[in-house]
Write a protein that binds this DNA or RNA. Structure first.
Lengths: 186, 186
DNA sequence: GTGCTAGATTAATTCCATTAGGCAATTATC
DNA sequence: GATAATTGCCTAATGGAATTAATCTAGCAC
């Protein structure tokens, strides 16, 4: 019988697939082991615990998100950059809900150097976008927070709570981004 | 031996206390039963399941939040109302993180009539605030969503992810609210 | 080929949710 | 005030998940 020949990256990758398809709560070692054709205890050769797996998944998600945003922002500035980055953010979160959710649990990602680096990378893209808005120092930090808050708030409500009324979500998102753009100029 | 004389409300209340103190994930029937001086199976006389308990906790949280917001908005209009409501929202979430988190899982609150009513009440307060901004129909809905997104985004990031850089969170919140106020006029 | 080692395995422990069946304290009834 | 009904609690048992310990083995290094 050929061995599964797993390694940490393969395990985390499979975890991402599972979490993105069925939600972060559905990610259990038992489920994951079954998907990988292996017994649960075998996973401990690659991750320290379920908590560790979630942390690694979060770090991976943050890295992917940062990469997507960086790609989106490349060669753009001002409103153009903001809009493109905002849409890239929304797309990533919609396509990888489990990875995105894991990436937001930054409290638990603290120790992980990779995770911190990835989170910083996300922040840096946002700060780079702000260069087109003539904001500096504390103003830029507050502005970056406002952008992050707005994007995360939309994603989070869309994923967990839902918007009851029947009215285009994409239109709401456009208005949110437009308000950010206007607000950052004032 | 005197009985605990529990009922559903007392159980949910204790659940709120536990979840607010230690986080929604720390809310287990085993823990809750211990706090109440009772064995876990006894709780099934008052709630159907852990899931049901979370749902009830969420409904209770939404009700409380709506009440706080309503109180905050009473007798105010426009920017004044927006600012007061925003601060009340932040205060509630900071003081009752477990209840707040449970209230956001609206997907699971669907069936519960009480929960739906409470969520609607929250939305109504926000819509009432918007009367001072001359927004109607779809515009008002989109604006209400933007407000909710902004407030929830801030609360959520503060609670789960944290803001890495050392810079006043309250100042960031003020700027967020100010941007909303300006954005709603434009 | 021999042996090392990463990667898997089975077995066992603990913790939790949940169900079933029974018991007793309170409350209602006379 | 005694009795009956109800309500709330208990013990016992099941099953699933994480985790640890002790072993086993395929595949590579030599």
């Amino acid at each position: 019988m050929t061995r599964a020949r797993l390694d940490t990256a393969a395990v985390v990758q499979a975890a991402a697939k599972l979490a993105d398809a069925e939600g972060l709560e559905a990610l259990t070692l038992a489920r994951l082991a079954a998907v990988l054709g292996v017994r649960s205890p075998s996973l401990y050769a690659h991750v320290d615990s379920l908590e560790d797996l979630r942390r690694r998944l979060g770090a991976r998600g943050a890295r992917e998100l940062a990469a997507e945003l960086g790609r989106a922002a490349a060669g753009r500035a001002g409103s153009d950059a903001l809009g493109t980055v905002a849409h890239a953010y929304l797309s990533y979160a919609r396509e990888h809900p489990g990875s995105y959710a894991a990436a937001q649990r930054a409290r638990e990602l603290q120790g992980d150097d990779e995770a911190v680096a990835a989170a910083t990378a996300v922040a840096d893209v946002v700060l780079a976008v702000l260069r087109g808005y003539d904001l500096h120092d504390a103003d830029a930090i507050h502005a970056a927070r406002v952008i992050r808050v707005a994007l995360h708030g939309f994603v989070s409500l869309e994923a967990d709570a839902g918007f009851a009324i029947e009215l285009s979500l994409d239109e709401s998102f456009e208005r949110l981004v437009a308000m950010l753009d206007r607000g950052l100029r004032a």
